[in-house]
């Protein structure tokens, strides 16, 4: 592995020696990485490289076979389901296909996590917060629409707005620009950057889109066949003489 830079700040996420296999196929092999406070870390790699498995292990949707994930000092392997849920409240997850609840309107989608976890808020307060959040993502007009009526870009923004309703400290993005046209992808990237600037949220961005990686990353980790092959800033990776890195950057 080519390590261009070591970040020595407070790590809020620490992943060490993570391994995951499905049947006989090794999907993640000895993954070690950290995310510091306020940092945008991009995990870059081809489809099937193990990126989505990594992010799913991080949020507790998949249990790793070996290794440890430590978030805010809590070891995922040692916490109960209730503690895991407490941890999840501090983490936002934007799914590749947005995963909006299709039986609920946009308003209900955004209000849903608040109604479950912030019961102290009145209905009017929740409505106000939903409207504010939609205004922030530029989709106040879509408040009463159903997910089926939204375009891909709009769904992505609403999905992002929904995850932000609980003020997470870490954002996990699974292919945030996947399936979007260049203009919409840029808008989503801008939203991610705004978010980091405004709220100082740490982010882990899983992508195979080089433009997205270049624009959002403070640091990039390149993953290939389940293993980390390079780490550094975009510029550092670009200067690399490694054949694998060069070919990926050129092809992308």
């Amino acid at each position: 592995m080519q390590n261009f830079r070591l970040v020595a700040t407070d790590n809020i996420v620490k992943i060490s020696s993570l391994k995951k296999s499905f049947d006989s196929i090794t999907v993640l092999n000895d993954i070690n990485l950290n995310i510091s406070e306020g940092e945008n870390l991009v995990v870059l790699g081809k489809s099937g490289a193990g990126k989505s498995t990594l992010i799913r292990c991080l949020i507790g949707l998949i249990k790793p076979d070996e290794g440890e994930i430590c978030i805010f000092g809590k070891k995922m392997s040692e916490i109960s389901y209730e503690e895991l849920n407490e941890l999840r409240l501090k983490m936002g997850f934007l799914f590749q296909n947005s995963a909006l609840y299709d039986s609920m309107s946009v308003r209900q989608n955004l209000a849903f996590p608040l109604r479950r976890h912030k019961k102290e808020y009145s209905k009017d307060q929740v409505d106000l917060m939903v409207e504010d959040m939609l205004e922030h993502v530029g989709l106040k007009g879509a408040i009463d629409k159903m997910p089926a009526e939204l375009s891909g870009g709009m769904s992505k923004r609403i999905g992002l707005a929904r995850t932000l309703m609980l003020n997470p400290a870490i954002m996990l993005y699974d292919e945030p620009t996947g399936g979007l046209d260049t203009v919409t992808a840029k808008e989503i990237i801008q939203l991610i950057l705004d978010l980091q600037k405004r709220k100082k949220i740490s982010s882990l961005i899983i992508t195979h889109d080089l433009a997205c990686a270049r624009m959002t990353a403070d640091r990039i980790v390149m993953i290939k066949e389940g293993s980390i092959v390079a780490e550094g800033t975009y510029e550092e990776l670009e200067k690399s003489k490694d054949e694998g890195i060069c070919s990926y950057l050129e092809k992308s």
């Binding site: 949020i59 507790g60 949707l61 849920n85 407490e86 999840r88 409240l89 983490m91 997850f93 799914f95 590749q96 296909n97 995963a99 909006l100 609840y101 299709d102 849903f112 996590p113 479950r116 976890h117 995850t163 609980l166």
Partner: peptide, 15 residues
């Protein structure tokens, strides 16, 4: 809901 990850979305929202 399962195949469109809506159940996973609930899970990660601590629901």
């Amino acid at each position: 809901m399962r195949v469109t990850e809506q159940i996973d979305a609930m899970e990660v929202s601590a629901i």
